[in-house]
Nucleic acid binder design. Structure first.
Lengths: 158, 158
DNA sequence: CTTGCTGCAAAGTGTTTGCATACAT
DNA sequence: ATGTATGCAAACACTTTGCAGCAAG
């Protein structure tokens, strides 16, 4: 059994039980992997890391678990345009870096969570959302803002 | 042979020749399809429409052509998160609606090009890009800003 | 002991590629 | 004539699904 999720475990456990889901070893392993990284792992990367903790988890369980976690909003699922989904633990509102956007290297796929400008961005996005909601009668549920380019290292190699 | 691209044809033709590419019937058909719609078609939709104009084009030609057109910046390729790419003709800077962002219905996949708030958005995005470029030493090449939600019709059905 | 969870393998989806042929210039 | 463009089918990468057995509560 994984050692610790920090403050996350109890919360997750309750969340699971509340919906009639079971917090199995596979699921704990996957949550553990996500809680121990700041990177945006793909399903396959998660699978390989989880293997070290609980070697009998298969890929399909990883996918099924990630989908479940995304549904429960315990993880965010992102698409950075390289054909595979990437996952990031939702560390809750207590986390200072809760709100962030992404900077993605189109060469090495490095992803940076940045929190600069966030306040201004959030303000404008909220305003835009309100305006769009009114004008187009949409119910806006999420937005995506990503910057793509070449990171420091890749810029120089070119 | 397709009837007209409006002002686009000559431009495309020159652009093609300039790079040693050929403006074949299949490619013309695809450009024609794109020029006659305001929707964001998927490769398969383009394939079906192009079929009516030039019935011997296969899917792989559609994909290859779209990739080429995207490279030449004659079309934009978008990913709206439903697992298939969508394409939109680049109508050039003369087009008033040149700069726009997207509002996407997560239920029916309807896509709205909106141009409201664009000036403010572009201003903030530029500012953010500059800041990120400096702080993270990135060379930013593009950004994505999309709003997801339920459109007027789908909102009511739920 | 009930019901959800799992691994495995197979199927599914959108896209890309190898190759021999067809075609634009 | 030259080399690009094409259709076809097979390959591809990621993800999803059916099913029989397993295990959490």
């Amino acid at each position: 059994m994984p050692r610790s999720f920090g403050k996350g475990l109890g919360w997750c456990h309750g969340r699971f039980k509340g919906y009639g889901y079971r917090l199995t070893l596979s699921r704990q392993a996957i949550l553990d992997v996500l809680s121990k990284t700041s990177e945006h792992l793909s399903a396959e990367e998660i699978y390989h890391h989880a293997y070290k903790i609980h070697p009998s988890s298969g890929m399909s369980t990883v996918y099924r678990t990630l989908e479940l976690l995304a549904q429960l909003q315990l993880v965010y699922k992102f698409d950075f345009g390289d054909g595979r989904a990437r996952y990031e633990l939702n560390r809750g509102i207590e986390d200072k870096n809760h709100h962030h956007h992404h900077l993605i290297c189109i060469n090495c796929q490095r992803i940076i969570n940045y929190t600069d400008f966030i306040d201004e961005e959030v303000e404008l996005l909220n305003k835009t959302e309100k305006g769009l909601t009114k004008k187009y009668n949409f119910r806006i549920m999420k937005h995506i803002l990503q910057f793509y380019g070449l990171c420091e290292r890749c810029k120089e190699k070119k």
